[in-house]
Design a protein around this nucleic acid. Structure first.
Lengths: 146, 146
DNA sequence: CTACTACTTGAAGTCAACTTTAGGTCAAGC
DNA sequence: GCTTGACCTAAAGTTGACTTCAAGTAGTAG
């Protein structure tokens, strides 16, 4: 397959060339050559970048993702770790689902403040169920694939 | 109702006093008085803090959360913004669900690398469906309520 | 009354994940 | 053959969300 220019990778992923260089320095991706100065990448880098972006959404740090994604999924992580992370994501999914419902409810609710609305409170209670006692996840702004 | 000491708020939420002071300075919470030097809080601060923590999980910045949570849900955000955010969370939920399934599959999959496993690839394809073209969300480590 | 402990302050420091800057290079189009 | 635009490097800067520091204070147990 023909290697693709960093500019094309940038365009299809929405990540800037600077970010791609940063990822390469971090060991998350590898360039397969150069055209003059310009980096070239094997098309499979797109799949790797997809995994990276998805991993970020799930709360993995770039260092963690490197272990998983750089190897094409041939991860060194023990089964236990993977299942624990899956459960953590499962929990997050349930909380976010409740929050989504809460937000939609807020739109049509007539209570003076939402903390006074019994339905909102019920929803939030579900969202905040303390089913995991370890670390959970917070989210930051990011990019989606274009 | 009796106001509660910052130490108790810290213990029940898992947030350090320094974090609570930081939130107060940011305008996310208000203290209702002092016992000597020590801040006291109305018990409703626990609900506010829950909303803050949940908001973080959904990708709101502290500045955004202030608008929503500090008012007890009497937000200035237009309906449109709330619904858009709800849709964004909905999308995130679907992606994370797929990732969770992907991780669980990886555990029992026999393919040499997971990028070679058709089932894994199908799962990831769902996870990465480009149904939203704007900003999405990334996650960071955080605390859960105890 | 003294010691202890957990708080107080403002300011500086940390961390991850990028982004920006300054100065440089090169393939392609005119 | 010269200009242009997009890349190159190393290093410094930025942002959000805290955390740590140094010096100080006050309620509580003994």
């Amino acid at each position: 397959m023909k290697d693709i220019d960093i500019g094309d990778v940038s365009k299809t992923t929405g990540l800037t060339p600077a970010t791609l260089r940063f990822y390469e320095k971090k060991g998350l991706i590898v360039s397969s050559g150069r055209n003059g100065l310009r980096r070239l990448f094997d098309p499979s880098v797109l799949q790797t970048l997809s995994l990276i972006m998805l991993g970020q959404k799930a709360g993995f740090s770039l260092d963690e993702i490197r272990e998983f994604a750089a190897s094409g999924g041939k991860t060194k992580f023990p089964t236990e770790t993977l299942l624990k992370k899956a459960d953590e994501i499962d929990q997050l999914v349930r909380q976010l689902s409740a929050l989504r419902d809460g937000l939609r409810h807020v739109v049509e609710c007539q209570a003076p403040t939402h903390t006074e609305c019994p339905r909102f409170n019920r929803i939030m209670k579900v969202a905040l169920a303390r089913t995991n006692k370890g670390a959970t996840t917070r989210i930051r702004k990011g990019k989606s694939i274009r």
